[in-house]
């Protein structure tokens, strides 16, 4: 039943994304228009996929670091991706894929660094160190990024700054296909870890007593969630709050078990980001807002509400 509602809402959101836009198309021309097929549809689908990936990555990482206020970008990935992207812009790397690839490499580099830090305590990943290491690596990367931006020329600076806030203006069917080919593996790893993730909420030792192989679980979930986030940031920039707020909303509505939480977080994250992107490209048309600004404006009040609820209970 919940999936019928969610899939219905997803289709409605995608339909709305096709209908509205700065080029005011008459309804009759809609299905023949290249604007719809080559611009609006791939863009809406990509936003949906990225939102879904961020929702799933956020839900899994919150269970992994056992901190309900964790966000996929908290683990240093946004900093690394931002650094890679801004470096690509500053170095004038050519080609349409230079920027996403540089961002992806930056994110994976940050991930590797944080992972290494998380292993410092011994053979097992320590989630607390993952969190602290993520914040530290992210802050370092942000400092280098800001240094690069401050040395850049004005137009480059604007591009870099806008990229950091996220957006889907570069979306194409090729990008959609790349994500469709890439995402199933990490998504599959996370879905297969759904039940052990339920157990991990009890603590590492209790989870082991209920049958979870905690060491492999932590490694698999960290790598899969980070690789999902890295791909999302590479194609869309840093889009905050989707990975933080969506899992909480889904937990409130459909419960905390990951067998339900992960699929509902995927659909809800997709709906939210597709809707936010539609807003981002229409409210200030013909100009575009970075979609990260829309999600932050929507997400911060929700987050504040959740935080209050959390501290009260």
């Amino acid at each position: 039943m919940k999936y019928v509602v969610l899939v219905g809402a997803a289709l409605a959101t995608l339909a709305a994304a096709l209908l509205v836009g700065p080029a005011n198309l008459p309804l009759a021309d809609l299905f023949g228009s290249p604007i719809v097929w080559q611009l609006r549809l791939p863009r809406a689908v990509l936003a949906f996929l990225v939102g879904g990936a961020l929702g799933v990555a956020g839900a899994s990482l919150q269970a992994l670091v056992r901190n309900p206020l964790a966000d996929p970008f908290l683990l240093g990935l946004s900093g690394g991706a931002g650094l890679g992207a801004v470096a690509a812009i500053a170095l004038h790397l050519p080609g349409p894929w230079a920027l996403p690839l540089a961002a992806f490499i930056g994110a994976v580099g940050a991930m590797a660094l944080v992972y290494r830090l998380g292993l410092m305590g011994g053979a097992e990943l320590d989630p607390r160190i993952l969190l602290l290491g993520g914040v530290a690596v992210g802050a370092f990367a942000a400092a280098v990024t800001t240094a690069l931006v401050s040395l850049a020329e004005a137009t480059e600076l604007r591009n870099a700054f806008l990229w950091l806030w996220g957006g889907f203006s570069g979306a194409s069917w090729t990008t959609v296909l790349v994500i469709l080919a890439y995402a199933p593996l990490p998504l599959g790893v996370l879905v297969a870890a759904a039940r052990p993730l339920d157990l991990l909420a009890l603590g590492e030792e209790p989870a082991q007593y209920l049958g979870a192989d905690v060491r492999r679980l932590k490694q698999g979930v960290y790598l899969a969630a980070s690789l999902l986030t890295a791909a999302a940031v590479a194609v869309a920039g840093v889009i905050g709050f989707v990975g933080l707020v969506v899992p909480h909303v889904c937990r409130l509505v459909w419960g905390r078990l990951h067998r339900t939480l992960l699929p509902t977080a995927f659909l809800t994250g997709g709906i939210l980001l597709a809707a936010a992107d539609t807003l981002a490209r229409t409210v200030a048309a013909p100009r575009e807002l970075p979609v990260g600004i829309v999600t932050a404006l929507l997400g911060v009040p929700v987050f504040a509400f959740l935080l209050r609820r959390w501290t009260v209970s």
């Binding site: 056992r66 209790p206 209920l210």
Partner: peptide, 21 residues
């Protein structure tokens, strides 16, 4: 394996968390 053992031994550890309601 942890899974095999959990079918044979049930444990009440001293402490555990309840992260989510």
């Amino acid at each position: 394996s942890r899974r095999e053992l959990a079918r044979v031994v049930g444990v009440l550890p001293q402490r555990e968390d309840n992260l989510f309601p």
